[in-house]
């Protein structure tokens, strides 16, 4: 007899050691997220995956599933607050979708669409952030970094390197490249590294590929992020 939790009233089986996110994904239940990726150690920082577990807010990506938990996920209150958190990410950085080459393939943009975010709501921070175009094949646009640390984790856990780190405190957080000059060209990043391809936004981009797939034919131009996410992150899926 397998153990179960309920998510929005539906029984979801889980195995010991699984997080709520893992159990949900395996059962084809989408929980919005940005810093979570099934291949890497959960981080729990973006807070988009916040769900109510027995009445208490928890990050689904880090919180262990336990027998009998009643989880609320797809509720109006949670989705409304997730939208607000997404708006926070938009105003903190400089995210101008129409001029961004990641548009249509961007998870931040896709989550915003999914949550029906129609404006920024908050005043923009207009943070001064730099570009690093030093590397011949990979570009960093710090304006679009949301500090999800996926590149940090991918470099460390998959590539066996430590190309990226997050530095600074509070609102002064920033992505750091591990090289003496601080520039990407002097790091040991290879364009084939997982870390170069994992960014959910347009902060880390592969050069010379920008518009090979035309706008209108991109991933989220035709599919909602919940479909794409479940299709790619389902443990038995492709």
């Amino acid at each position: 007899m397998s153990k179960t939790i309920t998510i929005d009233g539906k029984a979801i089986p889980f195995t010991e050691g699984q997080t709520i996110m893992q159990a949900a994904t395996a059962a084809d239940v989408y929980i919005p997220h940005l810093c979570h990726h099934p291949e890497f150690t959960p981080h729990g920082s973006c807070k988009l995956c916040t769900v109510k577990v027995n009445g208490r807010n928890c990050s689904a990506c880090t919180f262990p599933a336990a027998e009998g938990q009643e989880v609320l996920n797809n509720t109006q209150e949670l989705n409304s607050d997730r939208k607000t958190i997404t708006q926070m990410l938009f105003v903190e950085g400089n995210h101008f979708c129409p001029s961004c080459e990641k548009t249509g393939n961007c998870q931040l943009q896709a989550v915003a669409y999914h949550l029906n975010m129609l404006d920024d709501h908050f005043p923009l921070f207009y943070a001064h952030r730099a570009m690093d175009a030093s590397h011949p094949e990979v570009l960093i646009d710090h304006n679009r970094c949301i500090f999800c640390t996926l590149c940090v984790r991918a470099s460390r856990e998959h590539d066996g390197k430590a190309v990226f780190a997050i530095s600074g405190r509070g609102i002064n957080k920033h992505l750091l490249v591990n090289s003496t000059s601080g520039q990407l060209k002097d790091s040991d990043l290879d364009s084939g590294d997982k870390a170069a391809h994992i960014c959910p936004t347009g902060a880390i981009l592969i050069k010379h590929t920008a518009y090979q797939v035309p706008i209108g034919q991109r991933v989220y131009d035709h599919h909602q992020i919940n479909e794409v996410s479940l299709a790619s992150e389902h443990p038995h899926g492709e």
Binding site: S45, K47, M88, L89, F122, P123, R169, G170, I171, N172
Partner: peptide
């Protein structure tokens, strides 16, 4: 806002907002 560690979105951005 000055002391927020900046780890999570609601506190990092929220305390500044």
């Amino acid at each position: 806002a000055h002391e927020s560690c900046g780890f999570c979105t609601p506190c990092r951005v929220g305390t500044s907002l």
